[in-house]
Design a protein around this nucleic acid. Structure first.
Lengths: 329, 329
DNA sequence: TTGAAAGCGCTAACAG
DNA sequence: CTGTTAGCGCTTTCAA
């Protein structure tokens, strides 16, 4: 059974509030005699006392935990991001509670988000890009405690990935290389038939640069490498039929699917990656991709999350970070 | 601020324990008048009442949460496993608390594990394979509440991945294909200079099959595809120098590193994958790999975890599941 | 330097 | 059908 303060107190022959101060309170260490201090600590050690987090939180209403409603961690981008974020928060004395939400099943998604909302976290970071993945209503309750990451139209804390700028750089690069018609390869949006935001942006930007964009879609989710690869064959046929000379991927997963399914005769047609996840960075032969710095994202998001966590009242001011993309050629 | 039972009660003009029964207790719904039921519910809705989990847990000592101390989720194997496990537990009314432990930093690792130990979970699932990644002492306290996954020498709940059988199948397959000297490519163990368990097993098994195994190591962690790729070049040189005709990978990450760094002139030398993660399954041209069924693992581990969660006393009996590998050629 | 006591929000047994 | 009550384990203020 769990060892409680009282048991330690009894064994050490002091009042349990004394034990509490000594073990779980920073300034307790200077208030007691050397002897008591030592006896209590060693007894606690022996008995294997571990503070009951639930009780602590109930009492203090602080959790030292930041929730992260991330995209599916099977997408390496989110795996990277989560780990980096967790590491950063850990150095600041905070824990990360991860609610990776597969975008495959709205019911499960809702449950996962609810997990963060219902649980007390000092602040939560929520990934959004598409309109439909997360309903802001679920999160309304957490007024001022939400940091939006990715793309969002409301909320006082936002870290915005400038996807548009990334796609623009890609378009310019393609134009400068003499391409005239290019493909876009990515997942269908969950809320079919609405196309994904990246797709819409790319079509718009490409047209603006006199490229003739043609969108090719796979039927899997954005993390689903197997479907991305399977559907790749058809995509390559379409590439050929339409005389496309390059393909821009929705993300690195789509890019890898395309790379794996690329027929030998299409080897000369470049695939442009999007995210800069480690595997794609290591790809041989090296490919061109848009990269967002994980470190920048983590720093920005951490700053805002801690601000949100530490300020009781939602701020008037809007805090907005912009993460700029880098085109790696 | 948070809305509590008392506030709802006051607004609805009933005692707060009535509200509690109605909202948070399954059998409350039949005990009260239609009118009260309805009024309380709608008031709660309006006020946005959400039960305080910390208080519930403190009181009931049940959390409906299973902890999972997994390996690093940047390794796609663990990303897959975590997601599958979470989905399964969700259908059973349980939540998964993920503590992905990077094997890169013993201090962080300890903190992550502590996160599960300190937090009250009804049971925890702990991945282990190497001796040194997790200190069983940290977990001793949770007697009878721990399901060991991977490989472990103690504990009453165990799900054992038969790595040995997998490597044996690989060895037999290689022998049948006429290979005589083969390489093994994987990470150095964290606790250098102890080699990893898979390496030791492979060397043993290969020798037993009259293969001449040579181990080539990369300096990264088991999830680190970039290092695996970077060190791949040297590995391939060693392959050439030693006249090896095939290489067995520690895991899929190592395999992919090797595949990406494989020089054109070595294209005929097969790389054997180990785990069967989606990307490797999709690889073109297809490669041979050992696969462990995620579903089997999830089912086994879930069964044991729920048993552990629901039985107060640690069982006398030992519960042991064996997960058999499948060689996919 | 240490102890006493109130109470965080909730559950569950019991009383009315 | 509904209210009362005792506490879960802890923090924190105040008193001794």
């Amino acid at each position: 059974m769990k060892v409680t303060l009282k048991q330690v107190a009894q064994a050490a022959g002091v009042h349990y509030s004394t034990v509490a101060s000594i073990l779980n309170n920073a300034r307790g260490n200077s208030r007691f005699s050397e002897q008591t201090l030592h006896r209590v600590k060693s007894v606690a050690q022996q008995l294997g006392y571990v503070a009951n987090l639930d009780a602590q939180r109930l009492k203090t209403n602080r959790t030292m935990t930041i929730g992260f409603a991330a995209g599916d961690i099977r997408n390496p981008f989110f795996a990277e991001l989560s780990i980096a974020l967790e590491a950063k928060l850990l150095t600041l004395g905070y824990e990360l509670l991860l609610a990776s939400h597969a975008q495959s099943n709205p019911v499960e998604d809702a449950q996962r988000i609810q997990k963060l909302v219902g649980r007390s976290v000092d602040a939560m970071i929520v990934w959004t890009e598409e309109q439909d993945t997360i309903t802001p209503q679920q999160i309304q309750q957490q007024r001022g405690k939400v940091v939006w990451l990715g793309w969002c139209e409301g909320g006082c804390y936002q870290v915005h990935l400038d996807v548009q700028a990334g796609l623009k750089q890609v378009a310019q690069h393609l134009v400068s290389e003499g391409h005239q018609s290019v493909g876009f390869y990515g997942p269908q949006s969950f809320a079919h038939p609405t196309p994904t935001r990246r797709q819409v942006l790319f079509e718009m930007i490409a047209k603006h640069h006199q490229l003739h964009p043609i969108s090719l879609l796979h039927t899997g989710q954005s993390w689903d490498i197997q479907t991305a690869t399977r559907c790749g064959k058809q995509a390559w046929q379409a590439v050929k039929q339409n005389g496309l000379t390059a393909v821009v991927a929705y993300n690195d997963v789509a890019a890898m699917g395309l790379l794996l399914s690329r027929p030998a005769k299409s080897k000369s047609i470049p695939v442009i990656g999007f995210d800069g996840t480690p595997l794609l960075k290591s790809w041989q032969p090296a490919i061109t991709y848009v990269s967002f710095s994980i470190d920048q994202m983590v720093d920005a998001v951490t700053e805002l999350a801690l601000h949100a966590a530490q300020n009781k009242r939602p701020p008037r001011k809007q805090y907005l970070h912009q993460i700029e993309p880098l085109l790696v050629v």
